[in-house]
């Protein structure tokens, strides 16, 4: 199947998401809440594009729009730019000092929003990706709390969570680095809790928390090299493979 994005012919598979097709063809669409590992969040609305089919034009979020027909797509039409600017202005009102939002503002030539009373320290845009990440880990330590203007992401009762393993998946996926995570002197501080960091048995670098390590061992078995950091684990796997082929 072939679709046209901003005048460029692009090869597409049935059901493939517009954003993925655009990216494969080097066409830039701004995103915040999209993560390749956790697709389908679609809450930031930044990735909107215009899809044209005959006389029908509509605005869709490209990160969750599957291509099923040969359509024409505009990622930067006047209408899209105008709408996207509004979205960025709203995001700016929410997280005015955030570096990622600031960058978007610059990209779209927007000034800092002054119409609203803002919280200068706020960085979270409430996309909910962190909550998803935690669910995906199977932990469910955080969730969205309250609603409307009081909505936020937190642990139950804003306390140190009794289930959090300090893996940091939430902070890792956060598009605006809104989650306070700090590793200091072998201790990780996250969600009002402190975790003991453990060192990789090969390279000796701190790489995760004891709780995370234990959890992975329990879930996937002892023999999966959870005492090694990501890098050393990959290396070990590579060496093992090489050994196999030598025989």
């Amino acid at each position: 199947m072939e679709i046209i994005i901003d005048g460029k012919k692009c090869e597409a598979q049935y059901g493939e998401y517009l954003l993925d097709i655009a990216r494969k063809n080097g066409i830039h669409i701004p995103t915040l809440c999209h993560s390749d590992a956790l697709p389908g969040q679609a809450t930031c609305r930044l990735c909107i594009v215009e899809v044209v089919e005959g006389s029908r034009r509509r605005v869709v979020t490209s990160c969750v729009f599957p291509v099923t027909r040969e359509v024409e797509v505009f990622t930067n039409s006047e209408k899209i730019r105008r709408m996207r600017k509004n979205i960025i202005r709203l995001l700016s009102a929410r997280a005015p000092k955030n570096e990622f939002i600031q960058k978007l503002r610059e990209e779209y030539g927007l000034l800092q929003e002054t119409r609203f009373a803002v919280d200068e320290k706020e960085n979270c845009i409430l996309c909910g990706l962190c909550v998803r990440a935690c669910e995906e880990m199977g932990i469910f330590a955080i969730s969205t709390v309250n609603r409307g203007i009081e909505k936020k992401v937190s642990t139950p009762f804003d306390e140190a969570s009794d289930v959090c393993i300090g893996c940091g998946a939430c902070a890792f996926v956060c598009p605006t680095r809104a989650i306070n995570i700090m590793d200091e002197n072998g201790v990780r501080h996250l969600w009002n809790k402190e975790f003991q960091l453990v060192k990789c048995q090969k390279c000796g670098e701190y790489f995760t928390t004891r709780e995370h390590q234990e959890y992975m061992k329990q879930k996937f078995g002892e023999d999966n090299n959870y005492t090694l950091c990501e890098k050393c684990r990959k290396k070990a796997a590579g060496e093992k493979m090489a050994e196999c082929y030598r025989i």
Partner: peptide, 12 residues
């Protein structure tokens, strides 16, 4: 049900 989910509903 995880406590976080219950807390989310109870505050919503």
């Amino acid at each position: 049900v995880p406590l976080s989910k219950l807390y989310s509903v109870a505050t919503f």
